[in-house]
Design a protein around this nucleic acid. Structure first.
Lengths: 114, 114
DNA sequence: TATGCATATGCGATTTTTCATATATAATGA
DNA sequence: TCATTATATATGAAAAATCGCATATGCATA
């Protein structure tokens, strides 16, 4: 993972928040991210597709939902950068987490908690 | 330091390489960075000004040169992210370091080595 | 004055992002 | 089975942001 490509992935608000939320929650589907971010579904979907094509995320279809998680193959240092950002700036996604947890009808699946 | 602003700073090749070189060398002036990066002086200067206005770098004039270094006030986590990137992807700036060290007539000053 | 350096700016070009809309797929219920 | 609903994906085009180049300015010094 070229560091320039990695940091370009993080340099957009929708992508950065999505990555931090996924780092925190383990796995999230598009509709959950759409709700947590308060953004349009196509916008969220497009940015997730971009992160997947860079190799940062991988997806898994379960029923009608597609869940995104950090790709296991991403270099260790990039995971640590995300984790450190989350540790230091947790408040950055506080409001997004609140919206996520207030959301009703969240799809069920094996959850990985942070 | 808002993480989004920080990562936008890192999402440009000139800025990322400059920050990593400064992280490694402690302090560099514009002409040294211009040489190390092989970019035009106005381009380098413009990006350094941007990094300074974000609070990531601070400058110090000494004679005819302006030296840039990481601002002491930047949050610890951002310094650690830069250091971790450097540790993991040192080869990313190998060629820039070579050019820098081959450069003749480098301005003299108290050097801080990595 | 002349030189060497940093900085500032106007503008065109490129890239990125966003929006609107269309298509595809899966689940649900009649 | 078929229609409906809910989801993701794809795409074309507009809008916005960013970047790079050329050039001008300011400042210090020889």
């Amino acid at each position: 993972m070229n560091p320039l490509i990695f940091y370009k992935c993080l340099a957009d608000e929708t992508r950065l928040r999505s990555l931090l939320l996924i780092t925190c929650e383990g796995e999230l589907c598009v509709c959950e991210l759409t709700e947590a971010l308060g953004e349009s579904q196509p916008k969220v979907s497009r940015h997730l597709a971009q992160l997947r094509s860079c190799g940062l995320l991988e997806d898994r279809r379960q029923g009608q939902w597609v869940f995104y998680r950090l790709a296991p193959s991403v270099p260790d240092w990039t995971k640590k950068v995300l984790q450190r950002t989350l540790d230091a700036e947790r408040t950055f996604i506080d409001e997004n987490l609140r919206k996520l947890h207030r959301m009703g009808d969240r799809p069920e699946r094996a959850r990985i908690c942070c």
